[in-house]
């Protein structure tokens, strides 16, 4: 006991530093976790407030999960979440690294700066605004795309009800927003590469292409691996705004736009089914947790310092 106290005293400065953050974490993150037990309960409201409701609601075991997985939705949202994220990771990586290399090789550095600033713009835009941007192109009567189709005598398409286009639109929008940020992370790393490597390569008579292949890409490899692994760890989470606001919550598109995050949100907000939506959230956390543990294990193997814990 005495030892603990003296340890605390020794670490008092550090403890003081983490104090505000710890209070925040306890209040806004840990305290609400209490609500997760609702995944195993049939929620009934009790007059004495939420805690009383939680305590007095009847335990139903795995019923909420059984219900969740008996619907066709469970499969659809899992599939959508995973497949979209895999595509985002792969396409995003290629686009970001490609753009970064192009930016770094550009002879005119001023132009390169202008480009960097432009492609970074979407990163600063919320999806609320982004959805308006998309709407100006896809609106059935007013939109630019249907207007352009008109020049080629193609009938207008009602974009917001044709699900077949949306996988492409979503991947495109994800790239649109993400490529600037991604490429600048890689660009910063390319700039940091010691010029001596390139000079050595040039003495060996390596062409530009060879330099990229044998110097730039290998130097970027660790970063690519770390970022990709970190993305894989979050593969069960998705960008809510992209899947909810950009398709304007259109029912006809649910089969290709519904992901776990939007499902949880709609389950609570539209159906008021707090038990089922908590169960879905818990399912997401549990799978996500496992994935992170696995990826962290791999990260540690690759590069100990980048491991999260």
């Amino acid at each position: 006991m005495k030892k603990i106290l003296s340890d605390i005293y020794k670490n008092r400065i550090w403890l003081l530093m983490v104090l505000p953050g710890t209070i925040w974490l306890l209040l806004f993150s840990y305290l609400p976790m209490f609500g997760q037990v609702l995944a195993f309960k049939k929620f009934r409201i009790h007059p004495d407030g939420f805690f009383a409701s939680v305590i007095n609601s009847e335990w139903v075991g795995w019923e909420n999960f059984e219900y969740l997985f008996s619907t066709s939705d469970a499969w659809i949202i899992t599939r959508n979440t995973l497949v979209y994220n895999i595509i985002f990771i792969v396409v995003g990586l290629i686009a970001a690294v490609g753009t970064a290399i192009m930016l770094s090789e550009l002879v005119n550095k001023k132009l390169s700066k202008v480009y960097q600033t432009s492609i970074l713009f979407p990163h600063f835009i919320s999806w609320v605004i982004g959805s308006y941007f998309v709407f100006t192109f896809l609106s059935t009567d007013h939109g630019l795309l249907n207007h352009v189709l008109g020049w080629f005598h193609i009938d207008p398409i009602s974009w917001y009800s044709e699900s077949k286009y949306w996988p492409f639109i979503l991947v495109f929008m994800s790239l649109w927003k993400g490529v600037g940020y991604g490429s600048i992370v890689y660009l910063a790393s390319i700039v940091g590469i010691d010029r001596a490597y390139y000079e050595a390569a040039m003495i060996d008579g390596a062409s530009k292409w060879k330099q990229i292949k044998h110097v730039t890409l290998p130097m970027l490899k660790p970063l690519m691996i770390i970022l990709t692994i970190m993305n894989i760890g979050r593969i069960f989470n998705s960008d809510f705004g992209l899947f909810y606001q950009v398709p304007r919550d259109s029912g006809a598109l649910y089969s290709v736009t519904n992901v776990i995050d939007t499902f949880v949100y709609r389950g609570l907000m539209n159906l008021g089914d707090i038990g089922m939506s908590t169960a879905a959230g818990l399912y997401q956390s549990a799978v996500g947790f496992t994935l992170v543990i696995i990826t962290n294990y791999i990260v540690r193997k690759v590069d100990e310092e980048s491991a999260l814990f």
Binding site: I45, H46, G49, S53, L268, M269, N270
Partner: peptide, 11 residues
Amino acid sequence: AQKSQVMINSG
């Protein structure tokens, strides 16, 4: 719809 749902469920 959303707000009343949260208010009611939160007791």
